[in-house]
Write a protein that binds this DNA or RNA. Structure first.
Length: 645
RNA sequence: GCCGACGUAGCUCAGGGGUAGAGUGCUUCCUUGGUAAGGAAGAGGUCGUGGGUUCAAUUCCCAUCGUUGGCUCCA
């Protein structure tokens, strides 16, 4: 007999060789029906795999992420089986589960695969699923695996097998389809009750652009039809929040072919929003001891040769601007740090004045690949809420923590709760990609890790994601469609001070090298606004909203009074407009609601008599009448509630 | 940059080898209306751009620009 420990700590005894499925059966019939896979000690196993010694077992269902993973992984195999039936001779790359479903990379040869084919594949998948085929695991030798796929003529699988050690290779078979796979899988295909092909895209074999491009087919499946319907509804909802759509509808920003791709034009309303964000950040930074600076949009080639950016990005960035007579070369600035280094160097610095914190809303230009551009989240010209902190080595950690505090303050004020902090370290396999010595890198990486730990951040660590001059702590949030974006970033840098020969005079009257911290809590204003739009679905916090009120006169008889109210609100820096169109009040309300104006102030005969406004809140409805004075303090109270938290 | 899809009125989109259509917005007129669309008339498009096929192209083909879903990249 062996002991099986369940997640609640209870221990049950079973015959040696018991399967997780039998464990589930012994607990309850319902569980046996719903269980998909099991976590045995620390690895996820098929339910049918015998357990031969004492173990911790966690039974996984659709409600566990790992259960979903197994479900979608098995669905990828089902997709492959369907494709093989429909398109004989198709070759397969890899087919893993992803966050919202799964994909399979396939080589369809000369065949094309498009929207029209989706339904056919979905039907075939469901037809095969109904066969209740078991996912059968079989361990095979390397020679056997190679023989199978050689015979099948699937060079991609052979490429994968090449890197696997003999004795660790397994096949999974369901119905007529056999795949090289580590597993684990759900017991049989009948759990899959709903299937949808989401889209197709090109993907390079093994992610290398030198390799052949395969067709990546994305799909999603569910154990119930209802869940698929709900999933599709959620996607529809997300589309409504897309910042590109809302940006157009709310007249925040636009693009023009004539201006150039990836170069956003900020419309008046978007500019207001953006300027409010800037103002907010300026204030926060002023309090935190930053000093604003301003630097030009271009810098000489020499500047970037010194910084190392020329060597690293020179050929892959916008090409230099040349002077007609002197033959000098200038680059559009792709970042602000070199300029700020030169500001630091304008005079000798004493250890007593460090840290020096130089802040600038610096607009930078980067040549992003055309296929990368995406709304406001990835553009070629954008403004960073940039700052560089020059400090002594003994101040690094403290400064780093202060920056984390600032970032958290910003996120809190704007209602961002769902973010992760990504610690981006050097790729230990490929140190050539980076500049600087091991010692500096290790010091910087340690400082970041410790600071993040001290602040209790929820972190993930990514090797190879560091900037070429130093490790980073990035704050990542998701957009409406679940795509992850980097917002704030904090980077420790020992290299630029070296390259720019930055110095300060220490207490010992000797020259020392300061450390630099690059940081941008928003990251870029453009991306931040994009994520903010999607985060609040265009219903901005009151203090940020471009139009904070709309005054809606019942008829043109009350236009003068409306104008009077408007001017009084303006005097208090409350911003909005009067809707003087020749329309009925219902229409004006509807339009203001659609435009997501936070407050509608309705003025008619009653209001004019009493010097009042009838207040209607966006999305909520009538709040009743109040005097203009009352409304002003009501409004200011609402703003303060958020900002003075 | 690579692969796929798309590009028709300001916006959202339908159409299709014989030089175009809806809704909405816009203009004018009627209406002066109390909490999510009042009525009528009118103006708006060399169908992204350049080639080719054809008696004829907005429609078919090619190229190009842009948008888009991914891949690769991101100081």
């Amino acid at each position: 007999m062996i002991d099986i420990t369940l997640p609640d700590g209870s221990v049950r005894q079973y015959e040696q060789g018991v399967t997780s499925f039998e464990v589930a059966q012994s607990i309850s019939e319902g569980l046996a029906r719903n269980v998909l896979a099991a976590k045995v000690n620390d690895t996820v196993w098929d339910l049918s795999r015998p357990i031969n010694e004492n173990a911790r077992v966690q039974l996984l269902t659709w409600n566990d992420d790992l259960g979903k993973n197994a479900f979608w992984h098995s669905s990828a195999h089902l997709l492959a089986e369907a494709l093989e039936e429909l398109y004989p001779g198709v070759k397969f790359g890899i087919g893993p589960p992803v966050e919202n479903g799964f994909y399979y990379d396939v080589d369809l040869g000369e065949r094309t695969f498009s929207q029209e084919d989706f339904a056919k594949v979905e039907q075939k998948m469901l037809e095969l699923a109904r066969n209740k085929n078991e996912f059968k695991r079989r361990e095979v030798s390397k020679a056997e695996a190679i023989e199978y796929f050689t015979q099948k003529g699937d060079e991609y699988k052979l490429d994968l097998i090449k890197d696997l050690a003999d004795g660790t290779i397994s096949f999974y078979e369901q119905g007529k389809f056999v795949d090289l796979c580590r597993g684990p899988h759900i017991p049989n295909t009948s759990h899959i009750k709903a299937a949808k092909i989401m889209n197709v895209a090109g993907a390079y074999w093994r992610g290398d652009e030198k390799n052949k491009q395969l067709t990546r087919i994305y799909g999603v499946t569910f154990p119930k039809q209802k869940e698929l319907t709900e999933h599709l509804q959620r996607l529809e909802e997300a589309k409504k929040r897309d910042h590109r759509k809302l940006g157009k509808e709310l007249e925040l920003f636009a693009f023009s072919e004539k201006v150039g791709m990836g170069l956003p034009l900020w419309l008046p309303k978007g500019t207001l929003l953006r300027e409010r964000l800037e103002q907010f950040m300026r204030k926060a930074q002023m309090r935190a001891g930053y000093q604003p600076v301003v630097t030009p949009h271009i810098g000489s080639k020499e500047l970037y040769v010194t910084s190392g950016h020329y060597e690293k990005y020179g050929a892959d960035s916008f090409q230099p601007i040349k002077t007609p007579n002197e033959g000098e070369e200038f680059f559009l600035k792709p970042m602000n740090c070199p300029h700020h280094c030169e500001i630091y160097k304008t005079r000798p610095r004493s250890y007593k004045e460090l840290p020096v914190r130089l802040a600038e809303f610096g607009t930078v230009y980067r040549y992003e690949q055309s296929g990368e551009l995406h709304g406001l989240t990835r553009v070629r010209g954008f403004t960073q809420d940039d700052a560089h902190i020059f400090c002594r080595p003994d101040q690094v950690k403290e400064e780093f923590i202060k920056v984390i505090d600032l970032v958290l303050y910003v996120f809190q004020a704007l209602g961002f709760e769902d973010y992760t902090a990504q610690i981006s370290l050097r790729d230990p396999e490929n140190k050539k990609k980076y500049i600087g010595g091991d010692e500096a890198w290790e010091k910087a990486e340690t400082a970041i890790i410790e600071a993040a730990e001290e602040k209790g951040l929820r972190t993930v660590t990514e090797l190879g994601e560091a900037a070429f001059y130093g490790p980073k702590l990035d704050f990542m949030v998701k957009d409406a469609l679940g795509r992850k974006w980097q917002l704030g970033t904090i980077q420790v840098d020992y290299q630029l001070p070296e390259r720019f020969q930055l110095e300060y005079i220490g207490a010992d009257n000797q020259r020392h090298r300061p450390v630099m911290i690059h940081r941008a809590p928003f990251g870029s204003l453009e991306r931040f606004v994009a994520v903010l739009i999607e985060h609040c679905g265009g219903n901005f916090p009151l203090w940020l909203s471009p139009d904070q009120f709309a005054i809606l006169p019942i008829s043109e008889k009350y236009q003068d009074f409306a104008q009077e109210v408007y001017e009084r609100l303006q005097q208090h820096d409350i911003r909005g407009f009067v809707d003087n169109r020749d329309e009925k009040i219902g229409r004006k309300i509807r339009d203001a609601e659609v435009q997501k104006v936070p407050y509608m102030l309705i003025v008619g005969e009653k209001e004019q008599e009493n010097g009042a406004v009838s207040v209607r809140k966006h999305g909520e409805g009538d709040l009743g009448a109040m005097s203009v004075e009352e409304y002003i303090s009501f409004f200011q109270g609402k703003v303060a509630e958020v900002l003075n938290k």
